[in-house]
Design a protein around this nucleic acid. Structure first.
Length: 462
RNA sequence: GGCCCCAUCGUCUAGCGGUUAGGAUCCAUGGUUUUCAUCCAUGUUACCGGAGUUCGAGUCUCCGUGGGGUCACCA
């Protein structure tokens, strides 16, 4: 059984990069009928917050990414880590190091001055004497001093590191007894049965350290897939400074979860030329072997296109519900089908859609200056009056086509082009020269409101 | 600086030794529309450089160059 995981540290909101690796992990588990688990890495008591953890869970809910089983919090597993640390101590695979912070600092400075790699010198590795007074020891793991560590990465291929280049006896427990990241990650992944680890390639250089822990504890090493970073337009790792990296900000901006996921799944991964993926297709087609090796630049042009696509394909009943998030309640509007059909074709986001709808159902507060000039010249007033009379005299006006017939009559009788009635009428109804089809607009507004808006415009321009 | 990774249109990408280097997005133009948007059609734009292997290299190898990541008692 394939078990994958997403393991964020709750220092802030869920961001785009994290979401993409979470999505990849989720899809890979689902494709294999496996499990996708969520683990909160909150061992840094100073920087973590419960609110941030909740925000991450909320974001997952919005996106519909369900995790399997209970959420694991590392902060609640201290006794487990303590047990394995003790085991390594007992087996002589780890040891207490009494070097003080000051001593460590001077060691580093000397090494830097000599242009050497900064690393712990192994001073207490085989220490047998009496420890110095007044120093709370850290615990270090005995890492191999030579030889090579091979990471067999599912994305990048086989990567080998020389132990002497990158390893030293790194700390697995701090002076206060709390375990460190590279230790707990390996322990938890092993204990939770994670056998497929998909994560950002900024973790690639941590992997040899984690392998040291796996081997010391006798755990089997999972398959790793290190996915390339997402970069900002400057070509640097995407960070919180780049703006709009909070996943929930996309909800506020009016993006559909599916559009966001479709956008992200194609960032660094592809399946031939396919661009549009249903959730079901993502779950059956995703395979980490098709992940790109190179970083990609974050650019939301395509997201807008996808979002527009998915809005067009969302049923009106569902749109009605979604639009309530953007202060638009249409539930009791009798012409909402016509209205939504007219607007959903032209909006890139739900927010924009709500705004466009409000522009129709709210009377124009003013008329666009340029639009007036352009539309109200020649016999525009006469045309509008003729049309208004026809509307006023008509008995059954419901459908867009009913209004269209009346417009057609005016055009025929007055021997004018459609534009001669369309432009002033559009300004009268909407206050500007662009917008949805007028027949639909009038149908939505109804006879009375249509007449009122026309007369208002005539009065304002007489 | 050490170590590691990467390199095809502006952007996302296909390509896995022989292709007029494909798709999408963006942009431009035309068509449709009373308008704007949608939609449809067309177009501009790419293999970082140099050696080598090969009959043949975007594809394999090496060397450059460029970019990125990482080097904590942070995760």
């Amino acid at each position: 059984m394939v078990v994958t995981r997403f393991a964020p540290s709750p220092t802030g909101y869920l961001h785009i990069g994290g979401l993409r690796t979470a999505l990849f992990s989720y899809l890979w588990a689902k494709k294999n009928g496996g499990k996708f688990v969520l683990r909160i890495e909150d061992t840094d008591k100073a920087r973590n917050s419960e609110a941030a953890a909740q925000a991450i869970v909320k974001a997952f809910e919005w996106l519909g990414l369900e995790h399997d089983g209970e959420i694991i919090y590392q902060s609640q597993r201290d006794d487990i880590y303590a047990k394995y640390i003790q085991q390594l101590l007992d087996e002589g695979k780890a040891y207490k190091c009494y070097m003080s912070k000051e001593e460590l600092d001077t060691l580093r400075e000397t090494q830097m001055a000599n242009k050497e790699r900064t690393k712990y010198n192994g001073m207490y590795r085989d220490f047998k004497g009496t420890p110095p007074e007044g120093v709370e020891p850290v615990i270090r793991i005995k890492a191999p001093l030579s030889g090579e560590i091979i990471v067999n990465d599912g994305v990048k291929g086989e990567i080998s590191f020389q132990a002497e280049d990158i390893l030293d006896d790194f700390v697995i427990a701090r002076a206060d007894g709390s375990p460190t990241y590279n230790f707990v990650v390996a322990v938890d992944d092993a204990l939770m049965g994670i056998n497929e680890v998909i994560r950002g390639d900024d973790h690639l250089s941590n992997t040899p350290k984690q392998i040291v822990v796996y081997e010391a504890l006798g755990f089997s090493i999972p398959n790793f897939y290190h996915v390339p970073m997402i970069h900002n337009s400057a070509g640097k790792k995407l960070s919180k400074r780049d703006g709009a990296t909070d996943v929930m900000a996309y909800k506020e901006m009016g993006y559909l979860p599916h559009a966001l996921l479709n956008f992200l799944v194609r960032l660094g991964w592809s399946h031939g030329d396919q661009e549009i993926f249903s959730m079901q297709e993502m779950r059956t087609l995703f395979n980490p072997k098709d992940i790109n090796k190179s970083a990609s630049i974050y650019n939301t042009e395509k997201l807008d296109w996808l979002n527009a696509h998915y809005i067009k394909n969302t049923p009106n009943a569902q749109l009605t519900e979604l639009l309530q998030e953007y202060d638009l309640v249409l539930t009791s509007h009798d012409k909402k089908e016509i209205l939504l059909d007219a607007i959903k074709e032209r909006a890139k986001t739900l927010k924009e859609m709500a705004d466009l709808i409000k522009e129709v159902i709210n009377r124009p507060a003013s008329y666009d200056e340029k639009a007036l000039k352009k539309a109200f010249k020649g016999n525009a007033l006469e045309v509008l009056k003729t049309f208004a009379t026809k509307v006023s005299n008509a008995n059954e006006l419901h459908l867009p086509s009913d209004y269209h017939h009346l417009m057609q009559e005016v055009v025929d009788e007055m021997e004018i082009g459609f534009g001669k009635i369309g432009q002033p009428l559009r300004v009268a109804l909407l206050g500007k020269l662009s917008g949805p089809g007028l027949d639909s607009v009038m149908s939505v507004l109804g006879k009375e409101e249509t007449l009122l808006r026309i007369h208002n415009a005539i009065d304002a321009n007489s």
